[in-house]
């Protein structure tokens, strides 16, 4: 019975996210549009492309999944957290018997459901219009997606815990979010960047997630699994910062 209220809270927060146009745009519409628009440029299998039978949309799919995860974790979590704290919603929840752990778990779960929705939309559109395929193991794909979700949610809640107001949260989020999109092998290969920038690119949490998701989708053997350690490092950092700095009021 310790989890009383968990499912109701998670579902309710999920629905509230659906009522938030910015959330819906950045974590559902934008990744889907991105995949569809660029995917439509070349929907036939690319001649001479090293992975036979795959088209451009298939190349974009793993990046799209990364976008869904980063956008909902980096926009949803910090902004919800700061808004709720500023308005006193967290304080109000605290005078109910809802446990702190249930509250944290419920918020996390709601973002999980939201991300799953965003990813499903990508797959459905990809399947219907572009015949995207997953050549590698589904288990590995799902495992990687879940690891990515947890890592980014920890980072999102860390931002939401450190930052005071939702306005600051919005700015801080963009400072991390936008450069990361460019530097994480999503749109352009890291090798394009100057030598000094490359280590930074590789240290970003989205880079290994993106690379591994792509390798799994392409069905190529995973190399350099130590890079999962980079994500784990960010996960630990995010969790410590959250636990250390989280405030109710």
């Amino acid at each position: 019975m310790k989890l009383r209220g968990l499912w109701q809270l998670a579902w309710s927060e999920f629905k509230l996210n659906l009522r938030n146009p910015a959330m819906v745009f950045w974590s559902i519409t934008f990744p889907a549009l991105w995949m569809s628009l660029f995917g439509a440029i070349a929907s036939e299998p690319i001649p001479g492309f090293e992975y036979e039978g795959l088209n451009l949309a298939n190349f974009l799919l793993p990046g799209g999944i990364g976008l869904v995860i980063v956008a909902s974790a980096f926009i949803g979590t910090p902004i919800n957290l700061t808004t709720y704290r500023e308005a006193g919603v967290l304080k109000r929840l605290r005078v109910t018997p809802l446990r702190t752990s249930t509250l944290a778990f419920g918020f996390t779960l709601s973002q999980f459901i939201f991300m799953v929705l965003g990813i499903l939309v990508l797959f459905i559109i990809g399947k219907i219009f572009f015949n995207v395929q997953v050549l590698g193991s589904w288990a590995a794909l799902i495992g990687m997606i879940v690891f990515g979700m947890i890592t980014f949610l920890a980072l999102g809640s860390a931002i939401g815990s450190v930052v005071g107001s939702w306005r600051t949260a919005a700015v801080v989020t963009q400072i991390f979010f936008i450069p990361m999109l460019f530097l994480s092998d999503l749109f352009m290969p890291i090798s394009m960047f100057p030598d000094w920038l490359q280590p930074i690119c590789k240290a970003l949490p989205l880079t290994p997630l993106n690379i591994f998701l792509r390798d799994i989708v392409y069905g190529v053997p995973l190399e350099g699994l130590w890079q999962l350690g980079i994500m784990a490092g960010w996960l630990v950092l995010g969790s410590i910062v959250t636990l250390r700095f989280f405030k109710w009021e």
């Binding site: 006193g88 929840l93 109910t96």
Partner: peptide, 29 residues
């Protein structure tokens, strides 16, 4: 066993009144 009206609080801005009642009720034994 207590009910509380705080001096300044709000609930989730986009939640509907009935949803809020259901949600808060789910927190109690």
């Amino acid at each position: 066993r207590i009910g509380v009206l705080l001096q300044t609080t709000s609930i989730q801005p986009d939640i509907k009144v009935k949803e809020a009642l259901r949600l808060f009720a789910s927190f109690y034994q």
